[in-house]
């Protein structure tokens, strides 16, 4: 089979998208900046959702009533991630990262976050964890840096 040539063409286009986060996530990010985790309540099923959004899909109701959640919770599920995806390339991480699903006290959904302060070999579900914020917060999701075991 003849192998045909490949033509490469550099396309100097930059796709820049300016995504608006909307009212609810905006408030959540403000909360993170002041080192608080905010959830929102569905008036019908009374679930407290983190991250917050405008609608509860279960009840098709507009969510109302903000709650400030305690920054502590339980690790319900986790994976030890050895790779990260960069522009579609699967690259090895320098060291494995624990990505956990955390049930915050008072919340009904699980929050996905990094877990530190415990080795991948020792981490277990059921672990009590607390939120650790960056020292200087900027109103981004990265303000909530990770969770670590409650001592």
């Amino acid at each position: 089979m003849a192998e045909h040539k490949i033509v490469n063409s550099f396309v100097g286009l930059q796709f820049i998208y300016n995504y608006r986060v909307g009212e609810y996530l905006d408030k959540y990010l403000d909360g993170l900046q002041s080192k608080k985790i905010l959830g929102i309540t569905c008036p019908e099923c009374e679930r407290v959702l983190v991250p917050p959004r405008s609608m509860c899909g279960k009840c098709n109701a507009k969510t109302k009533k903000w709650v400030t959640l305690k920054p502590v919770g339980t690790l319900k599920n986790f994976t030890i991630s050895h790779v990260e995806i960069e522009q579609g390339e699967i690259k090895d991480r320098e060291k494995p990262v624990i990505i956990g699903q955390i049930k915050l006290e008072g919340a009904d959904s699980l929050l996905t976050a990094k877990i530190e302060g415990v080795s991948p070999k020792e981490v277990k579900t059921g672990l009590k964890v607390k939120a650790v914020f960056k020292d200087t917060t900027e109103g981004t999701l990265q303000d909530l840096d990770h969770f670590e075991p409650v001592k």
């Binding site: 986060v21 909307g22 996530l25 991250p51 599920n77 995806i85």
Partner: peptide
Amino acid sequence: PIYERQAKLVNEITAAAL
């Protein structure tokens, strides 16, 4: 684009792993 892409934790691998 506003939450998961910014949080950079969930992707096809970690979601399936969880």
